[in-house]
């Protein structure tokens, strides 16, 4: 019998290799090949530049805070020093890591999931004080399960309702916390 392993690139059909006991070296290799793609030079450049800008902003604001003198340092002195360190290190990073991107990870199409997740969290923060935690939490659970987690409509509905009910029972009924709630 011939044992055949298909490798396809579409993520939905990422066919996995039957895993047997392996030596540490082979294992390290598998982990290496499973690791996501490295961020690359563009991300490297971008992150360094953002940090430089951040450091400049820090320096300007620190100077406005009044540096004082080394004998009598005022409020701005320490943030000033730290901002300078950030700027210098960012520039060093820019130069030393030019070829860059040995660390970090490239954004994939699934990175949208993280963004959507972030959006639902912000929505929860905005809505919770207004209409209580139940509805926004239900919404969050449902979005995370149905679209970010590819659950079926049925199980997403069922589990998200269940989760909110249990959280209500624990946080409101059980612990009596003052989380905003409608019921």
């Amino acid at each position: 019998m011939q044992k055949h392993k298909d490798k396809q690139d579409t993520p939905e059909t990422d066919e996995i290799i039957a895993t047997e006991a392996l030596t540490p070296e082979e294992l390290a290799e598998i982990w290496e090949s499973d690791a996501p793609a490295k961020a690359g030079p563009v991300a490297h450049l971008a992150s360094s530049l953002v940090l430089v800008a951040f450091s400049l902003a820090g320096v300007i604001m620190s100077v406005n805070l009044d540096l004082g003198t080394p004998q009598t340092p005022k409020a701005g002195m320490w943030p000033f020093i730290v901002s300078i360190i950030i700027g210098v290190m960012a520039v060093v990073q820019l130069i030393v890591g030019r070829g860059g991107g040995r660390d970090g990870e490239r954004f994939t199409k699934y990175s949208w999931f993280a963004l959507i997740g972030f959006a639902t969290l912000i929505l929860l923060v905005i809505l919770m004080p207004v209409i209580g935690f139940e509805v926004p939490s239900l919404l969050l659970c449902f979005v995370w399960m149905r679209w970010l987690g590819a659950e079926t409509w049925r199980s997403a509905t069922l589990y998200s309702t269940l989760v909110v009910v249990i959280f209500y029972l624990i946080f409101i009924v059980g612990l009596g916390t003052s989380i905003p709630h409608v019921i």
Partner: peptide, 9 residues
Amino acid sequence: QIIESTYRD
């Protein structure tokens, strides 16, 4: 042939 695969949803 043995085919092992994963599916998302």
